[in-house]
């Protein structure tokens, strides 16, 4: 297929002939186990939140394309990915109307104002989530325990909150392992964290499934595996050093790795092809920066979780990294910049 799109990459420039929608479709396949696990562990609520997020992203993309007189770009699956990612990063009992608003903000402000797919400086799903975090700080930190009785045939009152009204919480809520550690210094069992028998955002709980999805994409060469490896290594090493210094105040490195949204962010969000650097060296710096910010926010910040802000800051740094680390043109001497 011939397209007029400008491809930006470092040499060699031989391509495999993968089209955008093919890669995007495969990312959706890689995320499917997470969606299924979210529905299994959190029930109908999580399913509704994810469906709403996808629907609002796709609708916004289609409406804005129509309005600006372009042909609709819904068929390239990128809006679907944004929707799924947004749904997976929200708490399972997040009100549907807020989810819808988040989808609109993700696509309209996170992606469309920059010029659509390929021009968005920031990960659209994270822009939407950051907006929701600032707008509705209470609702987005109301967590729900997983594997509750009757989760497949009842809907939480909070999810079904009337548009623009304050959600009512049913009384059952569960702290995430990260907030439990931050405020009460309680750590969780690593096996529970890895397999997802914990509370948290719909898609972040099962680290094993996220890693499997990541391996699938890395093997098919649809994701730069250096990014998640760099992020996770940095977090592991930094928190390991802190743990060795004082194992009473600082959490263990395996707890840091498997809790919260780190895995989901590192594998599916930081690897956004538009927002990450294009050279292999640049990607390592980018990953290390994100890892550093995650550790700093989690350990010394006011919030229990900082992956979202870390990745957004990493996205902001990307053009500068690309500018700093330019590959030497073959046959020329290294110039001092």
């Amino acid at each position: 297929m011939f397209s007029k799109t400008l491809h930006i990459s470092t040499s060699p420039h031989i391509r495999q002939g993968m089209s955008t929608d093919m890669i995007m479709r495969n990312v959706v396949y890689a995320m499917m186990p997470l969606v299924i696990f979210a529905v299994v562990s959190f029930g109908l609520n999580a399913l509704l939140v994810i469906i709403t997020a996808v629907a609002s992203s796709v609708l916004t993309e289609h409406a804005l394309c129509r309005w600006s007189g372009k042909s609709s770009t819904v068929s390239d699956w990128s809006a679907v990915i944004t929707g799924i990612l947004l749904g997976l990063t929200l708490p399972p009992i997040f009100p549907l109307w807020m989810t819808f608003l988040g989808g609109v903000v993700s696509i309209a402000i996170g992606k469309f104002v920059f010029g659509g797919l390929g021009s968005n400086a920031f990960n659209p799903a994270l822009v939407g989530r950051a907006f929701l975090q600032a707008a509705f700080p209470v609702a987005i930190t109301t967590w729900h325990p997983s594997f509750l009785e009757g989760r497949f045939y009842s809907i939480s009152k909070s999810v079904a909150a009337f548009p623009f009204s304050t959600p009512v919480v049913d009384g059952i809520s569960g702290a995430t392992p990260l907030s439990a550690f931050k405020f009460d210094k309680v750590t969780a069992d690593t096996a529970d964290l890895a397999f997802g028998f914990i509370s948290g955002s719909s898609g972040e709980t099962s680290a094993v499934l996220i890693i499997l999805g990541g391996i699938y994409l890395a093997v098919r060469k649809m994701m730069n595996w250096r990014i998640p490896v760099a992020i996770l290594t940095t977090v592991f090493v930094l928190s390991g050093i802190l743990y060795l210094i004082d194992n009473q105040t600082y959490p263990s490195p395996q707890f840091m790795l498997f809790s919260g949204g780190l895995m989901l962010g590192a594998v599916f969000m930081a690897t956004d092809m538009v927002g990450s650097p294009i050279t292999s060296r640049g990607v390592v710096i980018y990953g290390a920066f994100i890892g550093l910010i995650v550790v700093v926010i989690r350990i010394w910040g006011g919030l229990p979780e900082g992956v979202m802000y870390a990745i957004l800051l990493g996205n902001a740094l990307t053009p500068h990294i690309d500018n700093l680390i330019r590959p030497r043109v073959y046959g020329t001497k290294k110039t001092k910049s």
């Binding site: 707008a135 700080p137 609702a139 009337f162 623009f164 304050t166």
Partner: peptide, 17 residues
Amino acid sequence: ESFQEWIIMILPAGGFF
């Protein structure tokens, strides 16, 4: 009474939006 305030609007970010 039941209206959910958008906290972001009274924060600096809301000014830009």
